Computed example of a mutant assay.
Amino acid sequence: MSLCIMDLVEEGASPAKVDTIIRSVAKTLGVTITDSISSRTARRVVQQAAVASKIQAVDAVHHSAGAILSGDGTSHKGLNYESRHVHFVNPETNERQTLFLGLCLAPNHTSEEQLEGWVELIDEMHEAYMESPLGAKEPLDKREFYVKVVGMLTDHAADQKKLFSLFEKLKRSMEREVRGERVLKMVAPGEILQITIDLSAQAVEAAGGIAAWDALSNEERTRRNTELTADVIRHFGQRDFENLMPEQKAEVDFCIWCGCAMHKDLNAHKGAMAKAATYWDEKRKTPPIYLPNKDNEAASRLGNDAERARVQKISARGGIKLCELMGLLLKHKDSKRGQQERHSLYFEA
């Protein structure tokens, strides 16, 4: 019944209508229902499914050979939305699978904010997993999730390339930390103490000296001490990494960025239009007239030669401009502008 509720909500039924739909179908099939499902129950079932999906994603990634993350964002009425997915090969069926990791609001679309969103999501997923019976039976380290990531799929925007660079740096940091914890068992205590002293001195110097360190709040000092401990562990992890063969290093740090095919058709079309536009000069024929907007038309009429040349350069003409104008007229993105509703009603009639 929980699966039935989830399917109905996924297909667009509101939680308040789930009970009515089930009763209607049951009545048609001659099935008697003796209880009811409230809208609250339907919502809680969906919430439970969200938790189960996080647990599923963590379990799937940790037991796969590697995973690829992908994400995209858009804005609507001034709000930024981010959607995320994870892709992997199921080790049991050897099939490629994709899991949806949710849709969330983001304060902005900067690379740093997007990385923070990924970190928070991975933390939430592992928190849900560790609190489940599956996590109690088989605990998993969230840092291993980053190690498992071997690629990221985004669009070609500069902020996405920077996001991948930041994530790759974080992945390597997590790998060195996990590696460092593993090799610390084989390091002499005196050596660990010496490295800790050296890094502690650097941390105090970076804070502005011993007086500035002592002036830090207890929370800030605790945070920096925690980071210092991680730095010590990563130091030994990096040292162990440097002892690997070049091909082993490449395998450990393997992580690639893939760009989507967005705008490729558009770019090909624009290139073709630019080439086709040379036809008129080559054949010495009169090209289609320019169709500038009202402001550019006024500037072309009243301005000098340089202004008229600028207007011609930025104004379109011919079939591509005609298609643009017809789009604005018959399918305007603003529902209160354009003739799309009258156009639809005319053809329906």
Results as ranks from 00 to 15, higher is better:
Met6Asn: 13
Leu8Val: 02
Thr20Arg: 10
Ile22Tyr: 00
Thr32Asp: 11
Thr32Asn: 05
Asp35Cys: 07
Ser36Thr: 09
Thr41Gly: 10
Thr41Val: 14
Arg43Gly: 12
Arg44Asp: 06
Gln48Glu: 15
Ala52Met: 09
Ile55His: 00
Leu69Pro: 00
Thr74Phe: 09
Thr74Lys: 11
Ser75Met: 12
His76Ile: 09
His76Met: 11
Thr98Asp: 11
Leu99Thr: 01
Leu101Lys: 03
Gly102Thr: 06
Thr110Lys: 12
Val119Trp: 10
Ser132Leu: 11
Ala136Trp: 06
Lys142Met: 02
Glu144Ser: 11
Tyr146Gln: 02
Val147Asp: 09
Met152Gly: 05
Thr154Val: 08
Lys162Cys: 06
Phe167Gln: 01
Phe167Ser: 01
Glu175Met: 08
Arg182Gln: 01
Lys185Met: 10
Val187Ala: 00
Gly190Tyr: 03
Asp198Lys: 07
Asp198Arg: 08
Asp198Trp: 06
Arg221Gln: 03
Gln238His: 10
Phe241Pro: 02
Phe241Gly: 04
Lys249Asn: 06
Ile256Met: 09
Met262Lys: 12
His263Tyr: 02
Asp265Leu: 09
Ala272Gln: 02
Arg284Cys: 13
Asn293Trp: 01
Asn293Asp: 06
Arg301Gln: 03
Ala306Gly: 08
Ala306Asp: 13
Ile314Cys: 11
Gly318Ile: 04
Gly318His: 03
Lys321Gly: 00
Leu322Lys: 03
Leu322Gln: 01
Met326Glu: 07
Gly327Ile: 07
His332Phe: 05
Glu341Arg: 12
Ser344Phe: 12
Glu348His: 07
